[in-house]
Design a protein around this nucleic acid. Structure first.
Lengths: 183, 183
DNA sequence: TGCGCTCAATCAATCACTTGATGGAATATA
DNA sequence: TATATTCCATCAAGTGATTGATTGAGCGCA
């Protein structure tokens, strides 16, 4: 249910109340329980929705040599358009550390993401955009960590231009960008 | 109170119950309320404890040229020794997005961290370890994002050797390390 | 005695979830 | 076609359990 998804983005897991979800969905509490017998089932629904939404980021459309850079820009654009998605993802990431039910699902999504990035890095290497001596899997892990840190942890929100600069710096490290500005 | 701190690490904010905290601390509920009149006050105590604990990371002791690398290793060591700290930090980071009471405290800590890193990058540049064309503040932001993504988001926990490689790759990007292994 | 601290007992509020009933569309029966 | 039956979706009104917080009586020690 999209309503629960929105509620989590607003109030987090600690503030997730079935009453509020039902209210936001415009239905009775009993109706909500008709579709989602338990709160746990509702959360599972949210997980599925969030993961599906997040996987759309992986879809690459640009030319092979620019796919990697396009991926970074795609995540950044998604973070601007749907900040709730990253809030929910962060919430789920934290919860996956103690909830064995969603841990495998979350891990699977991240693994798929890393796999995609690994391929993109490999392609970029083949075409001379990225240093061939780098290990694609390691670079993918580092990129994921940086993006997670930038967008899932709302601390960095203290200035989107800082996020832009950090992203540009990451691209520069990867060799996708020549300009390394200063001060 | 350290007990509450531990409870949050175990069950997150959503699972934080004053009763459990009192039980883990080995005191009566009323005793807990004697020291922390409200749950909010208890959380403030946890925030203070976590921040103070986290700030110890900033303390640099190595030789100027190696301070930056030492900082990265220090964070990694702390993450291995006290994983709860990073769980709590992640929980606080997420909460700071919607709780105006802890948002400024958290932001202040991160700003102090970035300031420290900025200085370290600057020093490293002065001594020729890091490319002088890089913007210290931007590099600091990227490093913080990467570390946050690696340690606060427990997703990456799928293999500490992957974390090690990603960190080594980051050091390599910064110019602190020559070896860039492959596959 | 007075003060810092602790305790069992209790409260009102809130939570996830249940109950029994209702209307309406689809299907079966005549 | 007309009537009876079944099933799905929804609702108002609860239920018991749990929550954060309070109370007033003690305890040990200065």
């Amino acid at each position: 249910m999209v309503a629960a998804y929105r509620r989590i983005a607003e109030a987090g897991f600690e503030g997730l109340r079935t009453r509020d979800v039902a209210a936001e969905a415009g239905v009775n509490i009993a109706t909500l329980h008709y579709y989602f017998p338990t709160k746990e089932a509702l959360i599972r629904g949210v997980v599925g929705h969030a993961m599906a939404r997040f996987r759309t980021t992986f879809a690459t459309g640009a030319r092979p040599g620019e796919q990697l850079a396009a991926q970074l820009r795609g995540v950044r654009r998604l973070a601007m358009q749907e900040p709730e998605l990253f809030v929910v993802m962060g919430e789920l990431a934290l919860r996956s550390g103690r909830d064995p039910a969603i841990a495998p699902i979350f891990k699977e999504t991240i693994d798929a993401w890393r796999s995609t990035l690994r391929t993109l890095v490999h392609h970029a290497q083949s075409e001379g955009f990225v240093d061939r001596r780098l290990d694609p899997d390691t670079v993918a892990s580092l990129v994921i960590a940086a993006l997670n840190g930038l967008f899932m942890v709302p601390v960095a929100k203290a200035g989107s231009e800082r996020i832009d600069r950090a992203l540009a710096q990451l691209e520069s490290f990867l060799g996708l960008k020549r300009s390394t500005r200063r001060s």
